[in-house]
Write a protein that binds this DNA or RNA. Structure first.
Lengths: 144, 144
DNA sequence: TCTGTCGTAACAATTAACGTTGCGACTGCC
DNA sequence: GGCAGTCGCAACGTTAATTGTTACGACAGA
C-alpha cells in the first residue's frame, strides 16, 4: 500500500494556492507550486486538473494564467480531495477470480466486499472531518 | 491506491484453513489454498510466512506437512492480519523533500503526518472490530 | 505579434505487487 | 535407509500504477 502521495501533494497544492491568494495574489502557477512541492509542474497540472473536474479549483489560460480556488478552504474537506484524486477502492479483491467450486472461493468476495464497504465509509467520515482550512492552519503552526 | 490484495488473500487463506480444520483435517497445504484463491502456492507461502511471524498460523515441514491455525478464528481480527501483511502507512508523504524555504513546504509534512495518524488509528479500530470468525461466517452465508 | 502558462500526449523511470521456476531442507512412511 | 510430499527461500520475470520528463499546440493579455 501507499506508493501513493497524491492526496498529500493535492493538499499541499491547495494550501499553497489558498495562502498565496490570502497574500493578495490572483492566481498561482503550476511552476510555483511545483517548486514548493519539489516536483515537476506537469505533475501539479495533472493533479489540479482532477481537482478542477471536482469543482475545487479553476484555471485561467493565456497571459497571466494560473490557478485559483473555486471555493473557500473552509468548505473543502480531505474527502473532497480524496475522491477527486484517488480512483479505486482502498482494498482490492483477488486479481483473478477465485475458484467458484470452493465454498470459500465462492463466498470470499461478497464477504470482504461488505466488510470493506463499511470500513471505507468510516474512512470517508474521518476524511470529511478535516477541512483544508484545518490543514493550512496546521501547516502554519509548524515550528520553524 | 490499492494495487493491493494482500489483506484479501490473507483473509481468504485463514478462512480456508479454519474451515478445513473444522472439517476434521490437521493441516492445509499451500497448494490447496492456492487452488482456492486461484494463484501460485509460493504467493500463499509468502503470505502465510508473514502470518506465522505474527503468531497467527503455524507450519509443519516434512511428510504430512502444511499449515494450521495458531489461534482460534474468534481471537483474530482483520487488524492482526493487516499489521502482519501491510508494511507501510496508508498515505505517503512527498517522495522528495518539499522546499523547506517555503512556509507551506516546511509545514506540510508535520501537518499531514498528524492528520494521517488520527485517520489510520480510526481505520485500525474498524479493522479490529472484524474477527476472522465474522469473515468465515459471511463467507458461508453467501448465496450460491 | 510576443510572451507566459495551461492542456495534453507520449514516453521513460521507478516502485511494489504478483507470478513462476528451481532447489535444498525437512520428516513421516514404507 | 530411501522415498515422497511439502515447506523455505532465493532469483528472476511480468504486470500495473505512479511519478518524472520532454515536447508542443492552444490560449489570452500586453
Amino acid at each position: 500500500m501507499s506508493a501513493n502521495s497524491r492526496l498529500t501533494i493535492a493538499a499541499h497544492a491547495l494550501a499553497w494556492i489558498g495562502l498565496y491568494q490570502r497574500q493578495g495574489h490572483e492566481v498561482a502557477t503550476s511552476e510555483q507550486i511545483a517548486t514548493s512541492a519539489n516536483t515537476n509542474p506537469v505533475v501539479i497540472r495533472r493533479l489540479l486538473g482532477e481537482l478542477r473536474r471536482a469543482g475545487l479549483v479553476e484555471s485561467r489560460r493565456g497571459a497571466g494564467a494560473g490557478w485559483s480556488l473555486a471555493r473557500e478552504l473552509e468548505s473543502m474537506t480531505l474527502l473532497d480531495v480524496y475522491e477527486a484524486v484517488e480512483p479505486g477502492p482502498l482494498f482490492a479483491m483477488h486479481r483473478t477470480t477465485p475458484d467458484q467450486e470452493c465454498v470459500v472461493g465462492h463466498g470470499i468476495q461478497p464477504a470482504m466486499q461488505g466488510i470493506y464497504e463499511g470500513i471505507e465509509e468510516t474512512l470517508r467520515q474521518e476524511l470529511a472531518r478535516v477541512t483544508l482550512e484545518n490543514v493550512l492552519r496546521d501547516v502554519l503552526a509548524a515550528p520553524r
